[in-house]
């Protein structure tokens, strides 16, 4: 099923006779080489994490962030071509801002994913452009409280017509993954990039659909999964970058923020410990875990 020499892979917007768009498939290849990125939808929020491969010793540790904020309540992490990811984020910010311009409130995660899916898909239609070389994970929190619209000055009626509805269930975590084809699904746990297979296997073990995993446990698991996924490319050094969005009564109060330093360190330490444990089981009493760590 190779496309080489058939000519159907040379242009975007051209199908092959068996119904494939090769340009899109090549874009997926670009993603498969990127650092592993994951998202976990927890009970009280969403965790995003990425394995940032250190390509040079000259890069400043902790700088060059790979997870971006959109509006206040959304985070986006991409795997693949970093500049494509930046452009994708820029578009997401424009969409969120345009939503505010129209509806005077934050964009729901599903609506953002929908608009971004449409945007990415448009790049598969024209011969003048190439598809996005990224798969992006969009995570966020739709406010469970009735938010004031931007610029609202009064509290409105306390009861009766126009009053508040008691106990209406709204809001919650949102997690979506958008691929170069423009395809997007909502997920309990999403993984992309080089270590996605290992990461997905680990995510499946978490029984996320039960919606029991707490946000703090989600942070620990996310760190561990990135470390597990890194096992196959152990020769390369990496940095773990992690962000989260909690419910309004949680630690970030509905905002997308970096996971605090102490918690990140704790999660990383636990992740390393878990891996060492695995090594010992696999290879018996090797006892060199401590040295292996650094």
């Amino acid at each position: 099923m190779t496309s080489i020499g058939t000519g159907y892979d040379l242009s975007n917007s051209v199908f092959s006779p068996d119904g494939r768009n090769f340009q899109v498939e090549y874009a997926v290849k670009a993603v498969e080489n990127g650092g592993t990125a994951i998202g976990i939808r927890c009970k009280g929020g969403v965790v995003l994490a990425v394995e940032k491969i250190i390509t040079s010793k000259l890069l400043k540790p902790g700088a060059n962030k790979r997870i971006a904020t959109v509006d206040r309540h959304v985070g986006i992490v991409s795997s693949g071509l970093v500049p494509d990811g930046r452009h994708f984020v820029s578009r997401a910010r424009d969409e969120a801002s345009s939503w505010r311009g129209t509806y005077k409130g934050p964009i729901p995660i599903s609506a953002l994913a929908n608009r971004l899916g449409g945007y990415v898909q448009a790049y598969t239609l024209y011969s003048s452009v190439r598809p996005f070389g990224v798969t992006s994970i969009v995570g966020g929190w739709d406010s469970e409280a009735e938010l004031a619209v931007d610029g609202q000055v009064g509290t409105g009626p306390k009861s009766g017509a126009g009053g508040k509805v008691e106990g209406a269930k709204v809001g919650g975590p949102g997690l979506f993954m958008i691929e170069p084809s423009g395809l997007y699904w909502g997920y309990y746990g999403a993984a992309t990039g080089k270590g996605r297979q290992a990461a997905k296997a680990e995510l499946e073990k978490l029984d996320l659909s039960a919606e029991k995993l707490s946000l703090h446990d989600g942070v620990k698991e996310a760190a561990r999964i990135i470390y597990v996924a890194h096992e196959d490319s152990k020769d390369k050094e990496f940095e773990l970058e992690m962000t989260w969005i909690s419910s309004l009564d949680g630690p970030t109060q509905g905002r997308h923020e970096e996971v605090p330093r102490e918690l990140l360190d704790e999660a990383e330490k636990a992740a390393r410990r878990a891996l060492e444990g695995d090594d010992e089981e696999d290879e018996g009493a090797r006892g060199s875990g401590e040295q292996m760590e650094e």
Binding site: A68, T69, D71, R72, R93, A96, S97, R100, K104, D150, G151, Q152, V153
Partner: peptide, 17 residues
């Protein structure tokens, strides 16, 4: 005032990027 409030909201969001 509401217009300016929305303006400030958008600035705050952008600054936090």
């Amino acid at each position: 005032m509401q217009y300016i409030d929305r303006l400030l909201e958008s600035i705050d969001i952008r600054e936090n990027y």
